[in-house]
């Protein structure tokens, strides 16, 4: 049986467009709103990434740090993250959700218990920022057995030899980091160069769904739309920060932003 993530890409391929993948932090700006945000943006986004926040992130830029900080300050716990997913999935069973975060939270919970909670709540995939290949091999296999996609990351520093190995062991989606940066950095490489790297990776295995993330905003998304999918994260976190500053409703604001992003891909 095909995974929901694979089905989402199939659907986009048929519509001849890139998949829109969003990233928001669970519990930002509070538990209720983060569920409402998922509900509203899921009308336009194809796959939803949901961050489970960690207070010592080593690869996140300022925007996502701020969102994580807000969520943690509001007392978000792992069980709340799974609750949010469960409630979302109840009304949107087909929409894939990918949890993204750092390994220590899984380590403390225990891999098996964590994956069990993923299954119960309906999580479709995992991105673990600080568990690279080949250290992630065992855990990735465990995920596969539980029908959870483990999403491998590739970066501009990944050698071709390494890429081949990683792609061979990957599941339904691979994430290409567009540039040397933490999340939310300004796009410092030309879209042309990014797509060159993207195409290079695609040629290794054209069947794999490859998405691009880091530095993608409403300004840059159109120029990369030939990819299988594009991830927008920091821009959404920033939208929440700004709307809170201006006393606006972050849920409605985010709905509009994601709608606009989607329009740029059609």
């Amino acid at each position: 049986m095909k995974s929901k993530i694979a089905l989402a890409f199939d659907k986009c391929r048929k519509a001849k467009r890139a998949a829109l993948i969003t990233y928001t932090v669970a519990g930002d700006n509070n538990k209720n709103n983060s569920l409402k945000i998922l509900n509203i943006i899921s009308k336009h986004a194809d796959i939803l990434e949901l961050g489970f926040p960690h207070n010592t992130p080593i690869a996140d830029g300022g925007q996502i740090q701020e969102s994580s900080h807000r969520a943690l300050k509001n007392g978000i716990k792992l069980k709340d993250v799974f609750q949010i997913v469960k409630k979302f999935k109840k009304n949107n069973p087909a929409k894939p959700i990918i949890l993204m975060g750092y390994y220590n939270l899984i380590y403390q919970e225990g891999e098996n218990k964590f994956l069990k909670s993923c299954n119960i709540s309906g999580v479709d995939g995992l991105i673990i920022v600080d568990l690279p290949y080949p250290e992630n091999k065992k855990f990735a296999e465990k995920c596969k057995k539980k029908s959870i996609n483990f999403i491998q990351l590739l970066s501009p520093t990944t050698s071709k030899k390494r890429m081949k190995k990683i792609i061979k062991d990957s599941h339904d989606m691979i994430y290409y980091i567009s540039m040397l940066s933490t999340t939310g950095g300004k796009l410092k490489v030309s879209p042309k160069k990014i797509l060159q790297n993207y195409n290079f990776i695609k040629r290794i295995n054209p069947k794999k769904n490859l998405v691009i993330g880091f530095g993608i905003t409403d300004k840059t998304i159109s120029s990369l739309k030939s990819a299988n999918g594009l991830v927008v994260g920091s821009m959404l976190c920033k939208t929440i920060t700004n709307s809170l500053k201006m006393g606006q409703n972050p849920v409605i604001k985010l709905g509009k932003v994601v709608y606009n992003l989607k329009r740029k891909l059609i």
């Binding site: 080593i58 690869a59 390994y103 920022v129 600080d130 568990l131 690279p132 290949y133 250290e135 990351l153 590739l154 970066s155 501009p156 520093t157 990944t158 050698s159 390494r162 980091i177 040397l180």
Partner: peptide
């Protein structure tokens, strides 16, 4: 110990 690092830092 080990190396729990983002992919970007693997090569450096």
């Amino acid at each position: 110990g080990g190396n729990f690092i983002p992919e970007t830092l693997k090569k450096p």
